[in-house]
Design a protein around this nucleic acid. Structure first.
Lengths: 346, 346
DNA sequence: CTGTTAGCGCTTTCAC
DNA sequence: GTGAAAGCGCTAACAG
C-alpha cells in the first residue's frame, strides 16, 4: 500500500503569498505583538490564513524566538488521585497563561525520573515541575540536582512540590505539622493506641508524616510500638498489603491505624473489612491528603487536607513569578485536619 | 533586580567545535541512525557533549526533519479517574515508543475542545487522541470534524476513544452492550424496579449506556418509569445531586439505581447514605467503568469493567499502526459485568 | 567516512 | 508601515 499523499501543512510563506504580502507582514499580522500593521493588510492575511487553514508551527516559532511555551510536568503516577488533582491544577493554570503542558510519569522510579528530566530538557520548557516525593537516596538525588541545575543555568525554571531543602523553588506542603496536628486531634478524640502504615524508608514525604504523627503523640506521652509500624508501597495496594501484614501480628489493642496517605488508608480499610474487622467499630483509620474519594468511602475517611489543585496552580504561579528567578523561593500551603466518620470520638 | 545572566544552552555547533569535528559528524554521532561514524570521532563527540551538558533541541530537530515525536492527548478532566486511568495507559505506551505526550483538558466544554484541537495542531503532533464523550451537538461536532480532517490531511493521525461513527480511527467501548449485559445480570439477581441517573442528553456515552440498560430490561418486560430517570452532570457531584433529586420524588418501590458511570454512582451512594438510606439494604446501586475506587467503596460497587489503561495503550497502538492510515480503523475493547456487594442477589 | 552547504518555518533586525 | 535578509539549531543531501 503506497503511502497516502499528504499535503504539507500550509506555511507562513504560503499565507503571505496567498495574501500578496511579505513574509514579515504575514508574521506580524498573525502573531506580532505591536499592532504596527495596516488593517487592510492585516485582514487580507487573516483571510488567507483561514482559507489555507494555517496553523503556526510552534517548533519553528520556538526556534526562531529562542523560547517555548511549554511546561513540563513530572508525576509519579497519573492514575493516583493525589497526582491527578495536582496535575489538574497545573494544567488549568498553565492553559490560562497560554502554556502547553507535557506530562511524564516516573512510576515512582528515581532512575526513571532522572532519565525523564534529562530527556525533558530537550524540549526547552520554560518550566519544569516535579512532583512526587523526593527520596533521600543520595546518588540519584545528586544526579537529579546536577541535571536540574544545568536546566536553571540556561534560564529554565524549576519548581518542586512537597518538601523543601533542595536548592530550587518549591511549593511546600507541611507534612510534618499536618501529621502532628492530626495526632493531636486524634488523641483529643480519645484514641490512645496506634499503628501506622508507612511508605518506603527513603521517601521524604512518608518520613515527615510519620515523624509528625509520632511527635504529636509524644506530646501526650504516647508512642507507637515499633512492631506496629509497617512499611508498604505508597499505593492503595501497598496499604492493603501493609494492613494485612499488620493484622497478622495481632491488632487487638490498637484503636487507630494511621496510614501516611489516603490511598494507603483506603487500601487498608478494604483489607480490614475483608478480614471481618469493623471500621471504625473495632478499629479506626486515618489518612493524609484528602483526596476526593476520602469522603465517599464508608466510613468517610479522617485525613489531613492538602488543597491539591491549588498546589498545582501555585506551582505554576511560582514558576512564572519574578521572585522565582533566584531559584530558591518557597511557597507554603496550609494543611488542615478533617475529622470524619472513620475516627469518631470515643 | 537585573535579569540574571543565563548562558544559552550548548548547541550542536558548540559540541562540534569542542570535539574538533564538523557539525554533520557531531549530529551523526549524537543522533544519526546508521553507525557510519568512526568510533574515535564518536567518542570525542560524546565526551564533548557530556562536558558541555549538551541536550539536543527538539524544536530544532522537529523543524529540520519535518516531524515531531509528540502525542497530544485531550481529556475532559484529568482528575476524574476514568480519564486519568486512560491517560496512564496512553503515557506509558507513548513513552515506550519514545514519544512525548502533551495534555489538554476540555473541562467538558465542547467549545473549549474545539479551541484546544485547533491550538494543538500547532505542535504538529504525530498523533492526536481525543477522549471524552462525543456530543451530538451538531455545530461543534462539524467544526471539530473539519479541524481534525485538516489535521489528518497533513499526515497527522487521529484516534477517538469511545463511540464509533466518526470518520476517524477509534477505540470503541461497547457501552450499549455492556449496559445491556448489566441489566440482564441485575434482573437475574432478582431486581425488578429501576431508576437511572444519567448525564447530559447530548453525551453519546451517556445515551448509549442508558439505551443499552433500558433495552436489557426490556428483554424481561421491564421498563424504567420516566420520572425515575434523572439527569445530572457526568461527575461525582452530578451523581450526588441527581440522587438527591430522585429521593425527592420518592424511591419507595425502586430496588436498584443505575448510574451511567461510576463516579456518579459513588456520588449517589453518598447521597443515599446521607439521607439515611441503606445500600444495598434499602436500595441497590450499580455503575459503569469499574474505576479503581469502585471496589473500595462500601458496599463495593457493581459495575461494568472497561480496561481503562488498556484502552489508552490501544489508542496509541492504533494511532501508530500502519492500518490506521486509512483513518477509519476501529478497535473494540470488551466490557465485562462485575457484580459486587452493592447489588446482592435478592 | 567526513565535511560543506542547503534548507526547515518562523521572527526580527535593518533598510527603505 | 513594509519588505529583504539574516539567522535560530539541527538534519540531510551532496560532494569529496
Amino acid at each position: 500500500m503506497p503511502a497516502l499523499p499528504h499535503a504539507a501543512p500550509a506555511t507562513l510563506h504560503d499565507v503571505a503569498r496567498e495574501a500578496g504580502v511579505s513574509l514579515a507582514t504575514a508574521s506580524r499580522s498573525l502573531n506580532g505583538s505591536a499592532r504596527k500593521v495596516n488593517d487592510d493588510y492585516r485582514q487580507r492575511v487573516l483571510a488567507a490564513a483561514a482559507r489555507l487553514n494555517y496553523s503556526p508551527n510552534f517548533s519553528a516559532q520556538a526556534i526562531a524566538k529562542g523560547s517555548t511555551s511549554t511546561v513540563a510536568l513530572v508525576v509519579s503516577d497519573i492514575a493516583d488521585p493525589y497526582f491527578s488533582s495536582i496535575a489538574a491544577g497545573v494544567i488549568r493554570a498553565a492553559e490560562a497563561e497560554g502554556l502547553i503542558v507535557t506530562m511524564a510519569v516516573t512510576e515512582r522510579n528515581p532512575e526513571r525520573e532522572l532519565e525523564l528530566v534529562r530527556a525533558l530538557r530537550g524540549q526547552r520548557p520554560r518550566v519544569m515541575i516535579l512532583t512526587g516525593s523526593r527520596s533521600v537516596d543520595s546518588e540519584h538525588q545528586a544526579a537529579l540536582i546536577t541535571e536540574l541545575t544545568a536546566f536553571t543555568a540556561t534560564g529554565g525554571r524549576v519548581v518542586l512540590i512537597s518538601q523543601e531543602g533542595l536548592p530550587f523553588n518549591t511549593v511546600v506542603v507541611d507534612n510534618y505539622l499536618g501529621a502532628r496536628a492530626l495526632a493531636n486531634a486524634l488523641v483529643a478524640q480519645g484514641y490512645r493506641t496506634f499503628a501506622a502504615l508507612t511508605g518506603a524508608e527513603t521517601l521524604v514525604t512518608s518520613r515527615d508524616r510519620l515523624a509528625g504523627f509520632a511527635d504529636g503523640l509524644a506530646e501526650h506521652g504516647i508512642a507507637i510500638h515499633p512492631d506496629r509500624v509497617v512499611r508498604g508501597e505508597f499505593t492503595r495496594d501497598g496499604g492493603f498489603a501493609a494492613a494485612t501484614e499488620l493484622l497478622a501480628t495481632g491488632l487487638e489493642q490498637v484503636d487507630l491505624v494511621f496510614a501516611v496517605n489516603d490511598v494507603m488508608a483506603i487500601g487498608a480499610m478494604s483489607a480490614l473489612r475483608e478480614a471481618g474487622i469493623d471500621v471504625p467499630g473495632d478499629i479506626a483509620v486515618a489518612g493524609f491528603d484528602d483526596i476526593d474519594t476520602a469522603r465517599d468511602v464508608t466510613p468517610a475517611l479522617t485525613t489531613v487536607n492538602i488543597p491539591l489543585t491549588d498546589v498545582g496552580r501555585q506551582a505554576v504561579a511560582l514558576a512564572l513569578s519574578d521572585t522565582a528567578r533566584t531559584g530558591d523561593e518557597a511557597v507554603r500551603v496550609a494543611t488542615r485536619v478533617i475529622l470524619r466518620a472513620s475516627s469518631p470520638a470515643r
